[in-house]
């Protein structure tokens, strides 16, 4: 006679996952952040795409003068800064999830996430520096490439 497990029996404690990459509530905060930043990014990125690809002459109007004209306004500086940081954290956290899902070897995961965090740091630092140190009127550049408010 074969016996089957009593379906009403208390479930044996689930084996702890052999690898935990985060502790405590970190994953919960990440989950909440993905939704909160996602909602903001919809506004920021749709506004960005409209201004740069739809309004005016779209992509054919984008050049140094166009960027300089936008960053002359603090609104677009803050807009782009916020977009940079939120999109990079949102994207990096998404990529972290993908790496955790598919890279099953410890070494592979370590390398991929190391590269990911390196790319995150370089991109965010570079982008932030560019927004804050941007000079719309470099003195050695031909005047016709510069925005109209640069008068020699």
């Amino acid at each position: 006679m074969t016996t089957i497990a009593d379906p009403k029996a208390p479930r044996p404690p689930r084996a702890r996952p052999s690898r935990l990459t985060t502790r405590g509530n970190t994953e919960l905060y990440g989950w909440v952040f993905m939704r909160a930043s996602g909602a903001l990014l919809i506004v920021l990125i749709f506004g960005h795409l409209f201004m740069n690809l739809v309004a005016g002459d779209g992509i054919s109007a984008i050049d140094f003068g166009f960027v300089a004209g936008k960053w002359a306004s603090p609104l677009w500086q803050i807009w782009d800064l916020l977009m940079l940081w939120l999109a990079m954290i949102h994207g990096t956290n998404g990529m972290r999830t993908v790496v955790n899902d598919y890279a099953s070897k410890d070494g592979t995961r370590l390398v991929l996430k190391g590269l990911l965090y390196l790319a995150f740091t370089v991109t965010v630092v570079l982008g932030t520096l560019v927004i804050f140190t941007f000079n719309p009127c470099p003195t050695d550049a031909p005047l016709d490439l510069l925005p109209s408010f640069c008068t020699a």
Binding site: F64, V67, A68, G94, P138, A141, L145
Partner: peptide, 29 residues
């Protein structure tokens, strides 16, 4: 997932190309 990964890689490239405004107007253009 697929669109998210694609957008992430574009974002890295896009920050790099925009950073050329810091090099020179000619390089960016």
């Amino acid at each position: 997932r697929v669109t998210g990964v694609a957008i992430f890689f574009f974002l890295l490239v896009h920050v790099l190309d925009t950073s050329l405004v810091r090099v020179s107007p000619e390089a960016y253009n």
